[in-house]
Design a protein around this nucleic acid. Structure first.
Length: 464
RNA sequence: GGCGCCAUAGCCAAGUGGCUAAGGCAGGAGCCUGCAAAGCUCUGAUCCCCGGUUCGAAUCCGGGUGGCGCCUCCA
């Protein structure tokens, strides 16, 4: 496995810290609003990383956090009159629903910031003790970046001119210093701590939770891979790395991975630009797996410009997989470590080269269709095809649904019955060689958005 | 202003020093079909521009042009 390490800025050979085990931490969402397509893309990208590593034989421990205490949540709390817990519980639930719909596997560990305040306090105390942090007059506690010799070794983005753009604070010792703890203010949401009532800054949670739930404590690195959106590279990840280094004398992660953005009309999707596209809204129109497939079909580090036409193109490609699955119905099988799986894994082993993997898939589909044309009743062949589809489901998370319902998404029972009836009538007309009538019925269905296909298995239909 | 990324056929998208530049969508031709659909086969680009390095570059270097991102909450 080769991955692009953001710190090295190049592809490097992946070697786990210990044996065959891989520990991965992905920065999860701040739960003050519904998740948008950017969250979806990040989640899917690292879901495939996880699945690939598993398929390659690694034991993977995967952790993704929920930031459930933060300025924006507090603002929402103040504006809505709801409790912090009510708000965060609601959005965590909705996030998980979205991820399920997108076929993103649940993390092994899903810690919440508010349930790990003690770990953060312990780490801050350690930093104070080591003189890597200091308190300013209003009670805030800052991390002293000058105490970390390796500050900026991750992002390499910290020359003085850049740091001069950071909002000046006369109490900070260095421009890049950042808040570990924010002293309690009026109408705030606070926790008790030995160094004063307050709440954690944003960066400390990841370091503290990794240290508690996921880290090796007897190795130079705490975890294997730390991943997240490209916007987190600096300052978030730089700061996390610095804290952990100072508090534990270990490096936080051996490898760092960052995914590219989803853009809309070429611009980054973000709340402040008002161009976010919520996953929930997309799911009202498109099947979750279609959305997943679309978002995963561009390499994870490239920007992906969201576009409905491209999404529909992607759907047509996925349709072909499900049509093949229809042809072998109802035969199923489990994944096999055959040439096909090997080729998929080989593609993904090159920094998740999904395009190459999908090209392997397309070739397989074409070959399988041809073989089925020649040997429509070959059960061993069908078993083999089923096994390959199962590999795709396991590694890429596609093709796992029932192929008939995949093509009938969003059609209610009543309509289904009507369709079946019309198909029946058309069959009778065909039998009577009344092709005019048969074609009229087919046209009627087409006007309803239903395409028919006469196959050896009978007349099948798909929603267009 | 600093740092960084990107530019490949109508569209999406791999490839990053060397046989005929993957794959998908759309288009065209054919096979199949009562006709279709689906499926299968065939079919398209010298890689933003200029200069350089090299026996050889889409691929490396320099300079342009265009687009984007980070440096502020952000996947």
């Amino acid at each position: 496995m080769r991955i692009f390490d953001s710190r090295a800025k190049e592809k490097v050979e992946f070697k786990p810290i210990k044996d065959n085990e891989v520990r991965i931490y992905v920065c999860g969402p701040t739960v003050y609003d519904d998740a948008h397509l950017g969250h979806a893309r990040s989640a899917i990208a690292f879901d495939i990383l996880r699945r690939t590593l598993k398929a390659l034989g690694y034991r993977v421990l995967f952790m993704k956090n929920f930031t459930d205490i933060d300025d924006k949540i507090i603002k929402k709390m103040q504006d809505s009159g709801k409790s912090l817990k009510e708000i965060t519980k609601y959005y965590i639930q909705r996030y998980l629903e979205d991820m399920d719909a997108l076929g993103v596997q649940r993390a092994d560990i899903e810690p919440k910031a508010t349930e790990n305040i003690d770990a953060m306090i312990a780490m801050i105390e350690k930093l104070l003790e080591k003189d890597c942090a200091y308190k300013i007059p209003n009670g805030d506690i800052y991390f002293d970046t000058s105490k970390d010799e390796k500050y900026c070794s991750l992002s390499k983005k910290c020359d003085e001119e850049q740091l001069s753009r950071i909002e000046p604070n006369p109490h900070k010792k260095n421009p890049a210093d950042f808040a570990l703890w924010k002293a309690c203010k009026e109408k705030d949401y606070c926790f008790d701590a030995p160094f004063g009532k307050g709440r954690p800054g944003w960066h400390i949670e990841c370091s503290a939770m990794i240290n508690r739930h996921l880290a090796y404590h007897d190795m130079p690195y705490q975890i294997d891979i730390h991943a997240g959106g490209a916007d987190l590279f600096f300052p978030h990840h730089e700061n996390e790395a610095a804290q952990t280094r100072c508090a534990t004398s270990q490096e936080l992660a051996k490898y760092w991975m960052h995914n590219g953005f989803v853009t809309i009309s070429g611009e980054k999707m973000s709340k402040s630009l008002g161009n976010s596209f919520f996953i929930k809204d997309a799911l009202r129109v498109y099947d979750g797996e279609v959305l997943r497939f679309y978002l995963l079909s561009t390499h994870y580090r490239s920007p992906l410009n969201f576009n409905e036409e491209d999404l529909l193109q992607a759907k047509k490609r996925l349709d072909k997989l499900y049509r093949l699955k229809k042809r072998i119905y109802p035969i199923q099988n489990t994944p096999k470590a055959n040439e096909f799986q090997k080729a998929i894994l080989e593609a993904l082993s090159d920094d998740l080269n999904i395009s190459k993997a999908l090209a392997v898939m397309d070739n397989f589909i074409a070959q399988a269709n041809e073989n089925l044309d020649q040997n429509p009743k070959d059960k061993a062949l069908k078993k083999e095809i089923a096994s390959n589809i199962a590999s795709l489901t396991e590694i890429i998370g596609i093709g796992g649904k029932d192929p008939f319902s995949y093509f009938q998404q969003g059609i209610d029972e009543e309509t289904k019955q009507k369709i079946e009836e019309l198909i029946q009538r058309r069959s009778e007309a065909k039998k009577a060689k009344d092709f005019t009538k048969a074609d009229a019925i087919r046209q009627e269905l087409l006007d309803m958005g239903i395409a028919l296909m006469d196959t050896p298995q009978g007349t099948l239909w798909e929603k267009i």
